[in-house]
Design a protein around this nucleic acid. Structure first.
Lengths: 182, 182
DNA sequence: CAGGTTTCGATACTGCCAGTATCGATACCG
DNA sequence: CGGTATCGATACTGGCAGTATCGAAACCTG
């Protein structure tokens, strides 16, 4: 068996989780805009250099953080129910909370003008949706995809908070909307 | 009749429309983030000072610009149809286009951490919705309100682009979603 | 232990941009 | 003409993302 040889040099300290926690905490306290990388680094007890050595930008850091917190949507099949389940599970689950909601909106906005970040979000978040919805795609706009993702999740989560179970007809209508929106 | 007396001093040059046009054009070309106030001022052939004398911040300028371009939702009654019509009309109508879509997202993000801008958007955009939906409100989150506004508009607009008219049941379902989301 | 390699923290720096301050010039009014 | 408020131009502050540098660790191999 060819185990991956440990690369030479000093190994990275295992502070990813610490940084993620500090990121969420800082965003929650100060909001996306005021959660500067300096502050996040300070909150994590880490040098800013270390953060930029691991994540290429603030947006990438937060995207990785959200992904770590909520996980990528695990779409295996292509059924409508799975789409909705997935939408409920990740991001959306927290979009309405002050700090993290702002983070989502912020990363979304950043991504509009940041090809690199767009690529990260695209591959990590969107791809599963893209695959699941492939049959309906013609010329998907990344912006619209982001928006639909976050938004459907918001609506669904909020519906869940009302206590009323989602009616089958509502699920169908929403899925239709998502498909139409592409 | 007490006509409003013209205030003393040099009157303001009538460049509001020019600035608005330059703002939309610049945002369309460069995106929200890279559409700096300096560039907008240059595109309008106006000093940056003049812009800040009329609008208190970049966000306020763009909000005023969008409001001017699309108009505020003219909700007089409280019917579901009017809510949806309104959502289609303003902002939403352009949310999927590159430049202006970015502007909406940008202003939305800015507003999360900017009380002043939030107040502007709230009074100009949200109030009509708030009134129309008042019967269903408990503790509305401004963030959620923004999101719902923009998003429902997006979905509806996109549906409109498919050529298929919106089914009555879809409209009803969407309105229910909006109401639930509050 | 010695030499090679990579990360770490600290610090300083660049570049960009929002927003402010200042000032001479200009336009309107009485 | 004298009062007032806007105009353009310019310079500036402050904050933040991202980069550069460097001595000090940490790990491996010989």
């Amino acid at each position: 068996m060819a185990f991956t040889a440990r690369p030479p040099g000093r190994p990275r300290s295992s502070v990813d989780a610490t940084v993620f926690a500090a990121t969420l905490r800082t965003i929650d306290e100060l909001g996306y805009t005021h959660a500067t990388v300096d502050r996040i680094a300070a909150a994590a007890g880490v040098a800013k250099t270390t953060i930029y050595r691991r994540w290429p930008s603030k947006g990438a850091l937060i995207a990785a953080c959200l992904l770590d917190a909520f996980g990528a949507p695990p779409l295996a099949g292509d059924t409508r129910a799975e789409i909705m389940t997935s939408a409920i599970r990740w991001g959306a689950a927290k979009i309405s909370e002050p700090g993290v909601g702002g983070a989502f909106a912020g990363v979304f906005t950043d991504a509009i003008n940041d090809p690199a970040l767009r690529e990260i979000l695209s591959s990590q978040f969107q791809e599963p949706y893209r695959l699941a919805l492939q049959e309906a795609l013609h010329e998907p706009s990344q912006r619209v995809l982001f928006f639909i993702d976050v938004v459907t999740g918001t609506l669904l989560h909020r519906m869940g908070m009302t206590g009323e179970p989602m009616a089958e007809s509502d699920v169908d209508a929403l899925v239709e909307l998502v498909l139409c929106a592409l």
